[in-house]
């Protein structure tokens, strides 16, 4: 019965959404909006070839700050929701630890890990030239660490280092923002205060590249922290209540 009601409601919702979206046919030219400015300004004023990056980092850079914060928040909230082991692999299930991964995977992980990290670095350094950027690069780096974490169950990620990377990268982002406040022409938060360079060059876009690098480090550290927390949840037993 409940299912029927839900399905009926959903169909009504779907009908109305569809009728709304029919008014903007797929692929047809849209109402002139901000996108035309963006497509013009990004290569001309900002010298960033990837317009999506320009929007994400400069035009709507505040969103990105919020987004990084969301990930930071998620990793903090995860830490407060779940207990992490304090010391090196205590509280892990010994049975699971006994199932070592195969020699091949371990050797492969050793060889591929540096390449994956390099790929991640490539993606976030070239955020303003090619598809990708800080988030994607950070996610790739975190995936590299994931490979190591699942191949070597005893691998111990140093949370001190993660904390430092995370904090410094986040601080860099905000400080670049405040730098725009102090050095740039119009004294605006996150405003570009470096020379723009030339289009399609590694050194272009002013602060955009630097911000994306900071974002990459931060996202990488945060997602690695999330994965490590999840992978090393204590097997059983919660700490007694603290009210």
């Amino acid at each position: 019965m409940k299912k029927l009601i839900v399905i009926t409601l959903l169909l009504i919702l779907g009908f109305y959404l569809m009728s709304t979206f029919i008014s903007v046919p797929f692929g047809a030219e849209r109402i002139a909006g901000v996108k035309d400015y963006y497509l013009k300004q990004s290569p001309e004023t900002l010298k960033v070839s990837n317009v999506v990056t320009a929007i994400v980092v400069s035009f709507r850079g505040f969103d990105t700050l919020g987004e990084v914060t969301v990930l930071f928040l998620a990793s903090t909230a995860l830490g407060s929701i779940l207990y992490r082991r304090r010391t090196h692999h205590s509280g892990l299930n010994p049975q699971r630890e006994a199932v070592v991964s195969s020699t091949l995977v371990r050797t492969g992980a050793k060889v591929l890990f540096p390449m994956i990290i390099l790929l991640g670095a490539y993606v976030f350094v070239h955020g303003h030239l090619t598809p990708g950027g800080g988030f994607q690069g950070g996610a790739i780096i975190a995936t590299g660490f994931l490979l190591i974490l699942i191949s070597y169950r005893k691998f111990f990620i140093n949370h001190n280092v993660l904390t430092w990377v995370e904090a410094l990268a986040g601080t860099t982002f905000v400080l670049i923002g405040i730098g725009g406040f102090i050095f740039a022409n119009q004294n605006n938060f996150l405003e570009n205060f470096l020379p723009e360079g030339t289009l399609n060059n590694l050194i272009s876009g002013g602060v955009v590249g630097i911000i994306y690098i900071a974002v990459g480090f931060k996202v990488g550290a945060e997602i690695t922290g999330i994965l490590d927390t999840l992978l090393t949840i204590k097997e059983a037993g919660l700490n007694p209540d603290e009210n």
Binding site: R96, S101, M115, T130, P131, I140, T143, L146, R153, L231
Partner: peptide
């Protein structure tokens, strides 16, 4: 666009290895 493919080649197999590790009881 080739970058996307490159990243898929690198990341796709990690997902598979994760599931394989789950199957053998390693994670």
């Amino acid at each position: 666009y080739i970058d996307v493919s490159l990243i898929y080649a690198v990341l796709g197999f990690i997902g598979i290895i994760t599931i394989a590790r789950y199957l053998e009881g390693g994670i």
